[in-house]
Computed example of a mutant assay.
Amino acid sequence: MPTYTVTATSNRLSPSEKQSIVNAITQIHSQEGRAPEYLVQVIFNELSAGNHFINKRPVPADQMWVNGIIRAGRSDAQKTAMVTRIMNECSEAMRVDPSYVWAYICDAEKTAEFGAVLPEPGKEKEWVEAIPKDVRDRYGMY
Score class of each variant (00 low, 15 high):
1 M>Y: 01
3 T>F: 05
3 T>G: 01
4 Y>A: 13
6 V>H: 02
7 T>C: 11
8 A>Y: 03
9 T>M: 07
13 L>H: 09
14 S>H: 11
14 S>K: 07
14 S>W: 10
15 P>Y: 06
16 S>H: 07
18 K>Y: 07
19 Q>Y: 01
19 Q>L: 01
19 Q>E: 06
20 S>T: 06
22 V>F: 04
22 V>C: 12
23 N>P: 12
24 A>N: 03
24 A>G: 01
24 A>H: 05
27 Q>W: 00
28 I>T: 04
30 S>T: 02
32 E>K: 13
33 G>H: 10
34 R>A: 12
34 R>W: 09
36 P>K: 03
38 Y>E: 09
39 L>Q: 04
39 L>N: 07
40 V>Q: 14
40 V>P: 13
41 Q>T: 15
41 Q>K: 15
42 V>K: 00
42 V>N: 00
42 V>A: 03
42 V>G: 00
42 V>P: 01
43 I>P: 04
43 I>E: 12
43 I>N: 10
45 N>L: 15
47 L>D: 05
49 A>C: 05
50 G>H: 12
51 N>K: 14
51 N>W: 03
55 N>Y: 11
55 N>L: 15
57 R>P: 02
57 R>A: 15
57 R>M: 12
59 V>M: 11
60 P>A: 14
61 A>I: 14
62 D>V: 06
62 D>L: 13
64 M>F: 14
68 G>E: 10
69 I>Y: 15
73 G>H: 06
76 D>R: 13
76 D>M: 05
77 A>F: 02
79 K>P: 03
80 T>R: 14
81 A>Y: 06
82 M>K: 02
82 M>E: 05
83 V>W: 00
83 V>H: 00
84 T>N: 14
87 M>S: 15
87 M>C: 10
87 M>Q: 13
88 N>W: 02
89 E>L: 00
89 E>P: 08
91 S>M: 07
92 E>L: 06
93 A>F: 00
94 M>L: 05
96 V>N: 05
96 V>F: 08
97 D>S: 01
98 P>W: 04
99 S>Q: 12
100 Y>V: 08
100 Y>L: 05
101 V>Y: 09
102 W>L: 14
103 A>R: 04
105 I>W: 04
105 I>N: 12
106 C>Y: 09
107 D>T: 09
109 E>F: 00
110 K>E: 08
111 T>A: 12
111 T>P: 00
113 E>C: 00
113 E>P: 02
114 F>N: 04
114 F>Y: 11
115 G>L: 02
115 G>T: 03
116 A>K: 09
117 V>S: 12
118 L>T: 10
118 L>S: 10
118 L>I: 05
119 P>L: 07
123 K>W: 04
125 K>E: 12
125 K>H: 13
125 K>M: 04
126 E>L: 12
127 W>Y: 11
128 V>C: 04
128 V>W: 06
128 V>E: 01
129 E>D: 15
129 E>H: 07
129 E>P: 04
129 E>Y: 09
131 I>S: 06
131 I>T: 14
132 P>I: 01
133 K>T: 03
134 D>W: 10
134 D>Q: 14
135 V>Q: 01
137 D>W: 06
139 Y>N: 06
139 Y>S: 12
139 Y>G: 08
140 G>N: 05
140 G>C: 08
140 G>Q: 07
